[in-house]
Structure formats: structure tokens, C-alpha cells
Amino acid sequence: MRIIVPIKQVPEIAEVKIDPETKTLIRAGVPSIVNPFDEFAVEEAIRIKEKFGGEVIVITMGPPQALDAIRKCLAMGADRALHLCDRPFAGADTWATAYTLAQAIKTLEPYDLIIAGKQAIDGDTAQVGPEIAEVLGIPQITYAIKVDISEDQKRIKVRRETDDGFEIVECKLPALITAIKGLNEPRLPSLMAIMKARQKEVKTITAEELGGDSKQYGLPGSPTQVVEIFTPEARTGGIKIDGTEDPAGAAKQLIEWLLKKGIL
């Protein structure tokens, strides 16, 4: 089976701080990581490959330093990678991102399965996966928490999380699924594997090499436009009372406060 995993390098959101004066993100010193949902996707792809054979190809669109994220996935066990890296790709919204990635994925035909993350923890849109599937014209099953490939490797059965519980959904391959937490436990690459990953093939692709409708790439290809960025009113701690000695008294105070607020 040929499995393709689109991955994104993201800042470690937990360490992103806001400059209290300028109200902007402080990026300096914030580590870049593989989007956590994409690690589930890579892990699942490797497990399927280990069972059925074939290859796992990771693909990312991003700046030169996204190579670190690629290497991490190769160390986990992916076989090779495509890195779409060129200035004209910059500023892409989800449509332009999906369109560009889909052009590159087409060069990898025939593929059997694409596993994306549910969403990237920076952009947070959860749109790129389904948009890739639409551009490629293949079915999608989002929020996969369990995946079964049929013995003949022609069908996929997915346990998908919904708002009310789960659905078991089946379709023919090729298809695209998106991975959520709970799908698996991503492996930690061994030192050996990290060394070996340095030998694996990473193909860098420019906009010109990719071809396609280059008007759809990057900022000029993006139908949405961010016009303003601001920081939400930061929450600050309010009332804090001690309820260690007199929990009943504390409970009373809280309920009175809630009644006054009109919440109860």
C-alpha cells in the first residue's frame, strides 16, 4: 500500500506567550513541533505499512525549517518525503494549501490512502484534510479513532467520532481520513532510527517544478484574507477564597455570588 501523510510543522502552542505591551505573539524561543494530530496520522500509516507492506510518504508545505518536522516523521518510520518549499507558496489559506498539496499528491499516484491530522494546533481550522479530498475527488472519513483495512487492501472501515458517539463507516480505497487522539500512541523514534532518517530521501519541490495552476498558490490563490489580528482580553484571576477550614461557608459564598451574577 502507498500511504501519504500530509504533516504540518507548528509552534508548541503551550509555550507561545503574548507580549503584554505589544499584544503580539512572542515566537522567539518557542520550539517547533510536528502537529500532534499528524503524529497520530504518521503512526497509523506506519502500522498499516507494517501489516500490509508498501511505503509511507510524508508531505509538507512549509519553510525550510519544516525539514525538522519531516526528519522526525522519517525517524518514526516513514520512507520518504516531499517538501513543498518556495516563496510563492507563502500566505496560503486552507484552500490554497489544500490545492497545492493535492497537486503534489497527484504526482504520487497511484496511492491507496491519505491520512491527515484532524486539525493543526496553530491555524486550528480542520479544513485542509477535507479540502484535499475534494480536490482529488476521493471520499473522506473524518475523526478516525480506529481504522481497519480489508484483507484484500481495497476497502477501509473506520470508527469515526461524531457529536453523539461513533459511527462505523466504510468506503473503497483510495480515500482520505483524518486522525484524532485515541487512534494510537505515536512511537518515540530510537536513536538508531533518528540516525537512519538522515539517509532517507527528502525531495524539495518549488512552485515552478510543481506546475499546476500557479495562480491558486500562496496568498494570491487564497480566497480568504486575514484583515486584523488581535489578542482576546486576557482572563485574570478574580475572587479567591479559602475553603480549607470552612467548606460550607465557602460554598455559601460562591452560590451567593452566582445568584448575584444571575447565573443561577
Binding site: V16, L25, I121
Partner: peptide, 8 residues
């Protein structure tokens, strides 16, 4: 960005 920023 995990609720750290708002975008219009």
C-alpha cells in the same frame, strides 16, 4: 493559535 489570538 489555541485561543491566544483572534483573527478577523
Amino acid at each position: 493559535f489555541g485561543g491566544n489570538i483572534m483573527a478577523s
